[in-house]
Write a protein that binds this DNA or RNA. Sequence first.
DNA 1: CTGAAAGCGCTAACAG
DNA 2: CTGTTAGCGCTTTCAG
Lengths: 340, 340
Amino acid sequence: MPRAHQSGSGERPVTINDIAAATGVAASTVSRALNNPGRVNPATRQRIEAAARELRYVPNSQARALSSGRTGAIAVLVSDVTNPFYFDVLRGTQQQLKAAGYAQLLIDTEDSGELEAEMLHKMRRSLDGAILAASRLPDRALAKLAEEIPLVTINRNVRGVPSTIIDTPAGIHQAAEHLISLGHRRIAYVSGPERSWPNEARWHAAQDVAARHRLTFIRVGPFPSGRRSGTAAADAVLNTGVTACIVFNDLLAIGILQRLRERSVRVPEDLSVVGCDDIFGADFCHPPLTTLTAPIEQAGRVAVSMLLSRLDRTAAPTMRQSVMLPVHLTVRGSTGPAHR
Amino acid sequence: MPRAHQSGSGERPVTINDIAAATGVAASTVSRALNNPGRVNPATRQRIEAAARELRYVPNSQARALSSGRTGAIAVLVSDVTNPFYFDVLRGTQQQLKAAGYAQLLIDTEDSGELEAEMLHKMRRSLDGAILAASRLPDRALAKLAEEIPLVTINRNVRGVPSTIIDTPAGIHQAAEHLISLGHRRIAYVSGPERSWPNEARWHAAQDVAARHRLTFIRVGPFPSGRRSGTAAADAVLNTGVTACIVFNDLLAIGILQRLRERSVRVPEDLSVVGCDDIFGADFCHPPLTTLTAPIEQAGRVAVSMLLSRLDRTAAPTMRQSVMLPVHLTVRGSTGPAHR
DNA sequence: CTGAAAGCGCTAACAG
DNA sequence: CTGTTAGCGCTTTCAG
């Protein structure tokens, strides 16, 4: 006979059976009263609810999960917990998940597609779904995983997988127009991590602008995300002789700003810098960063909504497969007229 | 007859029974082989392990939790996900938890003690333990909760609850000496959230120094944590006529720096500012912040180790109840000689 | 509308 | 060392 559950100086936890005993109904009725209130006589339901409250009943989610297959947990995968971009994502997901009664499992994939796939596969039975905030998985692998477990991606577009996309590429146009209007003609795009989907999308947008305006975008990189990479990135940019650069994200841009100070390159006099995302810090670094402000928190919220509505079998399948969120350019101190 | 588990185009998941059938042993033997490898014949164990690998068996954590009482999940409670201080905590906890095979549940308590207690109580049966990174709970409530579920706190000292404490108060002495050596005599301590334990500890340390050096520390605040509060805090500090201030944390300090720029107060010429924690951003704000560098990530790691060793029944109970982590002063641009 | 009963997948006594 | 057995707490048919 198993003697489950560790120590706990408290008494045996209250179960559905205690409520059943207290109210003189069957356990199954208690279960129904608590989950499908409609299917039960209002009077008995009230008694059951009263007893539950009285006894301070808390459902055991493990047991529920075991028999129903629903765990009440959603994983949010990020590539690096210390990247401020995710703070806002997490805040958004947190909000919506809590409101819907789900627990949030935080998983750091350390920028590795393999780790990502492995974790998801392993946990697939203890999750109701997952949100991939920065998948490094190839399309194929992603699509396959999506068959194992309900998935929603952020900033990643794969056929068949619902996604929330922040339209930074459109913003790249705004950023470029801004630079061009300031007289810049030679501009660099500083590339982020190789496997990053938004990085490619941003680069394509840059090429677009270049074609349209008959100017050249020089690509430098790729660089791993993170402030550290700023040193190499700044040096690379300086070597190209451009007067302005658009950087994959703010984290990298801030790193570049630091390196430029070290090298006594003035911003924006000698070089204009534009970032992407408008993360924590973009407004108080020196100089404050001109950047594309993204609705990050909203992206988290929307992603959760999409996922939850997918989980809800009663919902109409008319759901959009992809939601696009607009960004806008926020001009601060890191951009100015082209020199010479 | 229950038909558990949602759709999932895949086949029925592999269970322990499939392995038992495949190897011709009892399910319980499989369970043992996988959990207590020592208690099983090496030969049969090998066959079982082979079969498990072959069939791509993944244990169902719900079922395991239900019968063993261990869920494999640890909650980390933070008061505000968007506070960079927690990024590093989370990175530390994440690392250790993953290494030990635990899942990390992230819970944002929104700075509310009630919410904190409620969440913990509700989830207590789906958690093996919890780490409170910034509890706003009264000692009493905390001690009571600790009887329900294994707890480790960070920066919070309550009798009977193991804790990881960052010794910022000792750092306050260093910071004060630094300011005093620069000629400052009137110094303010800018108070953080009212219910914050580290805030009180830092204030006490400040009073200590004041007594020792026969000078006055003026307390201003309390202010809620967050950059926004910097406006009010800066104005309050200016009203006191001090030449320097030590601020509860970097987030607030950065907010203060911003407000001072708005009001054209020069830092450090007109006012020196010292922060606490050395979070992301402290080194690139303007001017870069002199602050007490805390081993935040390490605190997360240590907290997890303490918790896990508590969960391990075989471990000696010689465990320390509290670990103290040292901080050091990092001097940057926000402090300088006192004016006048 | 309600009760009885089966079982989700796994672990933990207890015998052998 | 291994098989048998009895559940963990809950949901979900299936009969009433």
